[in-house]
């Protein structure tokens, strides 16, 4: 959790050998696994990579800036809508992706302008309300968004039509995004954000422009969420109001929390855990939403520092 009272896990970089090894192993697993598993599992892996980007975008705000957002599903979905709409109108996929990321960033900038004035619970509420407005517009603006029925388009270029080529394209893109975000949170700018998370007043007293930093952090985080949304459009070829619904934002946040807030790479573990569970549960029951709600309740009560953080705590206690 981003509440100042909860302990924040030490940044991964401080234990380089072990953490570096874990990251390398994880990357290796994502590189090799798709060659070993059937097609359906490859598409699940693709989904995990895409949603890990969304979870990392959430983590930039929730973990590194101390502002927990509930609108990233909506920003993500705006990009998805733009890509699918563009392809339906016969536009080129590349332009569609560029437009989509620009649109998502713009939406994030507008949301950011409003949201940075608040913090804590108010921030959460305001971003929730803003995200719901996107959902409401997507649901009602039938002439453009297709309303409840959503939009369908063929977004993927010919070259990436197959499951494996598409997976490796996503793998490469997500790899680059991850490196960029890793650099970003460790940059002086990222350190300033952590300073704001820990004490806003102190950073202000030190002469930092806190509002500007928060605004930029929000917009950049929205940019990454938009990238994830554009990838998702290519993955799914379809978009409906449920893509921008609150549950999407909630899933993104849950992934970030499960993986451990403020760890960035934890997003991959969180995304794998949630999407894996979703696919597992939906074999037996249609009540995924209940399971999601129940997990949220249980995590908040028993492991607010994230499942990974919880396991680490238990391990250190035993030692």
């Amino acid at each position: 959790m981003s509440a100042p009272s909860s302990p924040v896990p030490a940044p991964l970089g401080s234990r380089v050998p072990l953490a570096g090894l874990a990251v390398a192993l994880g990357a290796l697993a994502f590189a090799v696994l798709p060659l070993l598993v059937p097609t359906y599992q490859v598409s699940i892996l693709t989904e995990i990579l895409i949603f890990a980007v969304l979870a990392m975008a959430v983590d930039v705000l929730a973990g590194f800036t101390g502002r927990t957002p509930l609108c990233h599903g909506a920003i993500f979905g705006v990009a998805t809508y733009v890509v699918v709409y563009w392809s339906q109108q016969g536009g080129a996929p590349v332009t569609g992706v560029l437009l989509a990321v620009a649109a998502a960033t713009l939406v994030a900038a507008i949301f950011g302008l409003l949201a940075i004035r608040t913090s804590g619970v108010y921030f959460l509420l305001l971003t929730l309300a803003l995200g719901m407005i996107v959902w409401g517009v997507c649901l009602r603006w039938t002439s453009v968004t297709g309303g409840e029925n959503g939009l369908r388009g063929t977004v993927r270029p010919e070259l990436l039509a197959g499951h494996l080529p598409f997976y490796y394209a996503v793998f490469a893109v997500v790899g680059i995004i991850t490196c960029v975000m890793w650099r970003f949170v460790r940059s002086p700018f990222g350190l300033t954000l952590r300073g704001i998370r820990d004490s806003e007043s102190r950073m202000r007293a030190l002469g930092y422009n806190v509002s500007l930093h928060l605004f930029l952090a929000f917009t950049i985080s929205g940019f990454f969420a938009g990238l994830a949304g554009a990838l998702y459009a290519m993955f799914n070829d379809f978009v409906s109001p449920s893509t921008v619904a609150l549950s999407q934002s909630v899933e993104g946040l849950l992934m970030a929390i499960t993986g451990g807030i403020g760890t960035l790479f934890g997003a991959f573990i969180g995304a794998a855990a949630i999407i894996g569970l979703e696919n597992f549960v939906s074999q037996y029951t249609e009540r995924w939403q209940s399971v999601l709600g129940l997990m949220f309740i249980l995590i908040m009560i028993f492991a607010p520092q994230g499942v990974i953080g919880r396991v680490r705590d238990l391990l250190t206690r035993r030692r």
Binding site: A3, S5, S6, S290, G293, F296, M300, P304
Partner: peptide, 29 residues
């Protein structure tokens, strides 16, 4: 439920969000 997370504002909010999902799905059933 809420008694377990008293004093933690954000945990409370997120917990009630989980309850909202659960209740919504159960009423749908």
């Amino acid at each position: 439920l809420l008694r377990f997370v008293r004093g933690y504002e954000l945990r409370q909010v997120l917990l009630t969000l989980g309850v909202a999902f659960l209740l919504n799905d159960l009423t749908l059933v």
